[in-house]
Simulated assay, not measured.
Amino acid sequence: MKPIFKIASAFLLLAWTSIAVKAQTTTADESWELAKKQAATEHKLIFVDLYFTGCMPCAQMDKDVFPDPKVASLLKDNFVTFKSDILKEEIGKKLSMKYGVTGFPTFLFLNADGKVIDNAMGFQAVEPFMALLQSAKEAAKKGDFKKYSPQINEKDYPEFYQQAYMAGKRNVSFEVVDAYLKSQPSIVAEVPFVIITGLKIGRQYDDLFLKNITQLSKDFAKGSVSSHVFTILQHKRKDFEKTNDLTGFKKLLAEAKPLYTADEWTKFEGILLKDFGVTKSTNNPYTLQK
C-alpha cells in the first residue's frame, strides 16, 4: 500500500501496529487473521480503514487526521489498525461485501472476535474521529455489539451480491434482487439489510426500511443505516415536492434526525431543504430569443 503523504508524518507509523509490517510479507487475508490474533493477545479492539488509491477523503485522513498525536496515541494504545485497499485486496472486497460498504473511507470498529461495535463513513476531522474511537471503546466495554455474524462466509450471500463486490458487477436488475428479498423470512435480517444498503435498492423498499428504522439502528451499524436513510430522504423529497408539501417533508426529517450527530444533521438538513420546491432552470445562451 503506497503512502499518500510524505515521511514528515512518520509519527503515524508509531500508531500503526506491527500488523502493518507483517502485511508486507503475508497475503491480505492472512494479515487480517493476524490482526485478529494480535488484538486478542494484546486485549485491544480492531480499527479497520477501508480505502482505495485516488480517494480524496481517504488521502485527507492520511494527511491531516491519522498523524495527529492525540489520534495516533489513542489508536496505538487501544486498537490494532488494519488498512485495506478495496480495489486491490481480496480482504478489502470481502469486508466491503460483509458490511454492505458504499462510501469511502469506511471505518469499522470491531473486537478481537470480529463482533461489530459500529462503523462510520467519509472524512472525519480530528475531534469527531476521536469521539468515534472513544465511543467504540465505551460500547465494547459495555458489551454493546451489533448483530452482524462475526465471520465472513461468502456462501451466506446470493451470487449476484457476491459478484457485485468481489467482481465489481454491480449492475444487478431490481427484479433479481426483489425476488431474493421476497424469499427471505425476515427483511430486517443481516443479509437482506446489507443487500438493500449495499446495492442501494430503490424506492420500492424505502417505506419498509423507514418503518423498521428503530430496529435496524439497534441491530446494525449506525453509519450504514444513516447513509441509506439519507438516500431515502433524497427520494422522498421529490415526492413531497410534487405536492409542494414542505410541512410533511419536515415532519419526515424530524423523525430521521435522531440518527445523526448535530454536525451531520446541520449538513444533511441543509442539503435536503435547499431550494425545496424551486423549479430548476438553466440559462442557455444559445437559445433563440423572440
Rank of each mutant, 00 (worst) to 15 (best):
A179V: 03
G122L: 12
V116H: 03
D118W: 08
Y260V: 01
L133F: 06
S183D: 11
L50Q: 06
N153K: 04
Q151D: 14
F209M: 01
V172P: 02
M130R: 00
A28T: 02
L272Q: 11
L252E: 14
P158M: 04
W32M: 04
Q184C: 12
S31E: 02
V21A: 10
L216R: 04
N284D: 15
T287G: 06
D245A: 04
S9A: 14
I196K: 05
D49A: 12
I271Y: 08
R203T: 09
L45P: 03
H235Q: 11
N153L: 05
F209A: 13
S73I: 06
G168K: 01
F123G: 11
E30C: 00
G143D: 03
Q289M: 09
K280E: 13
Y205M: 03
Y148F: 13
Q24N: 04
S149Y: 01
G270Y: 07
Q134H: 08
E42F: 02
I46F: 12
F160L: 08
A20I: 09
T243V: 06
I271G: 10
T106F: 05
G114S: 01
D62T: 06
P258G: 00
Q60F: 07
K169W: 02
T25H: 09
L110K: 07
S183F: 08
E89W: 13
K222A: 14
S149Q: 13
Y161G: 01
A125V: 02
K141S: 10
I232W: 12
K169A: 13
S217T: 12
T25W: 01
S281P: 07
F193H: 12
F11P: 02
V278F: 09
F145I: 08
F66S: 04
F123L: 15
D239L: 12
W265L: 00
G202Y: 14
K251L: 01
A28E: 09
D144T: 07
L199W: 08
